[in-house]
Nucleic acid binder design. Structure first.
Lengths: 345, 345
DNA sequence: CTGAAAGCGCTTACAG
DNA sequence: CTGAAAGCGCTTACAG
């Protein structure tokens, strides 16, 4: 490969001068600089990464770690991941940083795969963890041991070591219920996740739902209008049609904690003889659904995921460059998007 | 940071012995080895990446480059990318290789972003290019100049420098038409992409469509039953309803070159008074659509994308390790999946 | 403005 | 079985 020495030989200078030119130092005679640049161009020289890193200790690479599996049909999580990645990528481009994409395996047993290896080997300057599940214990320990920064997206870890960016899911849900009420709906149900599934975002949405109804002094217990399912909405259809029979007053609106739960919700209502949006309005969360694939344009809440990714990366860069050593946190607001699935009552 | 020297000091040996233990060399006394391992464990030592790279010239990192933008609502391309990535990731895991995710900008002007920098800096041992658009000229030149391997997924570059894996889109389309004919359909239309959009896969599907109909000696010109649109199916609805009026005999089946074109196709037919699948059957391509979001379960063709990703990575690793210097190519078959949208006529 | 020396952390021969 | 020497490509003081 072409090294500084080769360039130096061709330009008739020492390799130190080449280094100076490469790094844009000013104390080089204009004429010398030209000779060196010509030689660089002729030989197609580019500074060797490893040589630079060994000196500087900085590798201009960050790791993106996430428990979200790349391979899955669950579009919601995929789209979430990709939009966040798009934001991170934009910041990385602007700073000439590369991203190593890694994933935290769902189960750690029977695998020798070590997702923290790049981190331990100092192959990355820092980590962005895209939440969904809590940061694993072993990762927290490594972060503590090595002194390199980590920013979390989509969760609010309590450790003072970790910076994070997140959306205000509680407020988003709270505001959503208020909006729905402004449309004249009195009884509102919530579709959430089973409590065995850890997802702080969804549980915050649930809390926002409950609080908003309490504050509105509704005549029913909000908890009685919560139905829980899993990410794939397994059994949701039946649960809903059963609930419709059980409820004294059927809800005229339903707040789905994820758009991906909407289709099964609609099916469950249909099974119980209710149609959307004629009988029941629906508001979701995420805004990932391609309109053309669903008969219904869903009113929803959109998180500024790309912005969050950008911001997380920028915070990480600040930490890496030691401009900021103190933990930083940022909370983003969610945008409510009305649409056909929400009707005035 | 903890170096081999620190470990050596603690274990009371030279750092060379530490290196031997780290690299699993056998010529180390069992007792010495134990001392060293204990010291490694105590200090949390991990070999510094840059040090290793500078010696070996291998960085155990590959670049994934793609012109597919991460940020977009076009689910088809996103899902395509992610499934391929999932396959690459699996191979990478098995070989302790990291992946740097980069994207080839759509327009090169007014940006100083250099997507080939990691490659030039020898920050990666090789590249996997996930096709959609042809490899840019400047990239081909760089590949020629630096002597590092590149494997292409989803395109068949003519250069003898590049290995590739691809699906047999021609045969898949050919077979699809035969299947549709087996279901009793005589007149079959094709929805493809405008010729200004470069996409070898789609154009191969179009060729397969034409050839199958020619071989079946149909009484019409297959070309008269081709409608072209763009990735977002802009104007497709109108084109189809117009075509239905124009055609002497309306098709009883339509082969959409991408599933994502199905909804607008269905709308266009509806506009012309035809319903799917009662009046017209539809077969698509990709199999990405989440069943629950569409009223119709689409008969389609599924590419083994994850397998392709895995294979591409393995080929690349072979090149990197110099086991194989000759260009390698692999063609995967596509699986036909019948479903509700295809009816017997 | 330019160059010789030392060193970043590691591995690869070479000596013993 | 173990260690001293040299070098991978680069940058950072230091000297002139």
């Amino acid at each position: 490969m072409v090294t500084q020495k080769d360039v130096a030989d061709l330009a008739g200078v020492s390799f130190i001068t080449v280094s100076r030119v490469v790094n844009g130092e000013t104390n080089v005679k204009e004429e010398t600089k030209k000779k060196v640049l010509a030689a660089i161009d002729k030989l197609g020289y580019a500074p060797n990464f490893a040589g630079q890193v060994l000196n500087s200790g900085k590798c201009n690479t960050i790791a993106i770690l996430t428990p979200i599996p790349l391979e899955q049909s669950q579009f919601t999580r995929l789209a979430y991941l990709m939009q966040v990645l798009a934001g991170i990528e934009e910041s990385c481009r602007n700073n000439n940083i590369d991203m190593i994409l890694g994933s935290v395996p769902e189960v750690m047993h029977n695998t020798s795969y070590d997702y923290l290896r790049p981190f331990r080997q100092k192959k990355v300057d820092g980590i962005i963890y895209i939440g969904l599940k809590k940061i694993p214990k072993e990762m927290m320990e490594e972060l503590k041991k090595r002194d390199r920064p980590c920013v979390v997206i989509g969760d609010r870890p309590r450790s003072s070591l970790l910076s994070w960016v997140d959306t205000d899911n509680f407020s988003a849900a709270y505001n959503t219920i208020q909006k729905i009420q402004e449309y004249g709906h009195k009884i509102i149900a919530f579709i959430g996740l089973e409590s065995t599934i850890y997802n702080e975002n969804i549980s915050e949405r649930e809390k926002g739902f409950i609080k908003a109804l309490q504050d509105a002094n509704v005549s029913y217990a909000p908890e009685d209008y919560i139905i829980r399912t899993d990410y794939d909405a397994n059994g949701l259809c039946e649960k809903i049609s059963d609930a419709v029979k059980k409820w004294h007053h059927a809800p005229s609106a339903i707040f789905c904690s994820m758009d991906s739960l909407v289709p099964e919700t609609v099916k469950g209502l249909a099974k119980a003889g209710l149609s959307v949006p004629d009988d029941v309005s629906i508001v979701g969360f995420d805004g990932f659904i391609n309109d053309s694939y669903y008969y219904l344009k869903i009113a929803t809440n959109v998180q500024p995921l790309k912005e969050m990714g950008k911001t997380a990366a920028e915070i990480l860069f600040n930490h890496i460059n030691n401009k900021v050593t103190k933990k930083q946190t940022e909370i983003f607001q969610v945008e409510f998007v009305p649409n056909d699935s929400l009707r005035k009552k």
